[in-house]
Amino acid sequence: MRKRSAALATIACALTAAVAFGAGSPAYASIDATVVVQRVGSTGDAGSMTHEDVGDIFTVWDRVADGHGVRGSLIDGSGTTLKSIYNGNGNGTNVKFAYDIKPGNAYYMKVCLVDGASDTTPIKCAMRYVYE
């Protein structure tokens, strides 16, 4: 009887340790980020870009019909644009793309006001570091 009680106590301690040190800690913390670009010559948000860690989804909003579209880009630490998307709807709806960012690497979200989908000259921009 004592051997059985000792064995059960040992198993219970081992399970408690496994839960406390392994099963309860996630591999990666969820990091969500937002960057906002302000209106030109006025106050308020013209557009924004967000990163949702779950699924690595990037969303770009054009918040106002001000004659400028919004381009959101994901840039790596060396300055290379990895993905870019344009939103010129001006009514607060969004466009999205997915990009699997890797832990330990540097990335930046850049959101700019531009004049048209093919415009490569930004009017005004904002950037934010994003990581996993």
Rank of each mutant, 00 (worst) to 15 (best):
R4S: 01
S5W: 13
A6T: 00
A7L: 14
L8D: 00
L8P: 00
L8I: 11
A9Q: 05
A9S: 11
A14S: 09
A14R: 00
A17T: 08
A17Y: 08
A18M: 14
V19F: 13
F21P: 00
A23V: 15
G24L: 12
G24K: 09
P26H: 02
P26Y: 02
P26V: 11
Y28P: 00
Y28H: 14
A29C: 01
I31V: 13
I31C: 00
D32N: 15
A33S: 14
T34H: 03
T34G: 00
T34D: 09
V36L: 09
V37Y: 04
R39S: 09
R39F: 00
V40I: 15
G41Q: 06
G41E: 07
T43L: 09
T43A: 12
T43C: 01
G44D: 09
G47V: 08
G47H: 09
S48W: 15
H51C: 02
H51M: 11
E52M: 10
E52V: 13
E52A: 14
V54L: 10
G55C: 05
D56M: 02
F58E: 10
T59F: 06
V60G: 12
D62I: 08
G67V: 04
G67R: 10
R71A: 15
R71Y: 06
S73E: 14
S73W: 01
L74C: 09
D76H: 07
G77A: 13
G79A: 05
K83G: 04
K83R: 15
K83M: 12
N87L: 06
G90A: 04
G92H: 04
K96R: 11
F97L: 06
F97P: 07
A98P: 01
D100A: 15
D100F: 03
D100C: 00
K102G: 00
K102D: 08
P103W: 01
P103H: 10
P103L: 06
G104L: 03
G104P: 02
A106G: 01
A106D: 14
Y107V: 09
Y107E: 10
Y108W: 14
V111P: 10
C112P: 05
D115F: 03
D115R: 13
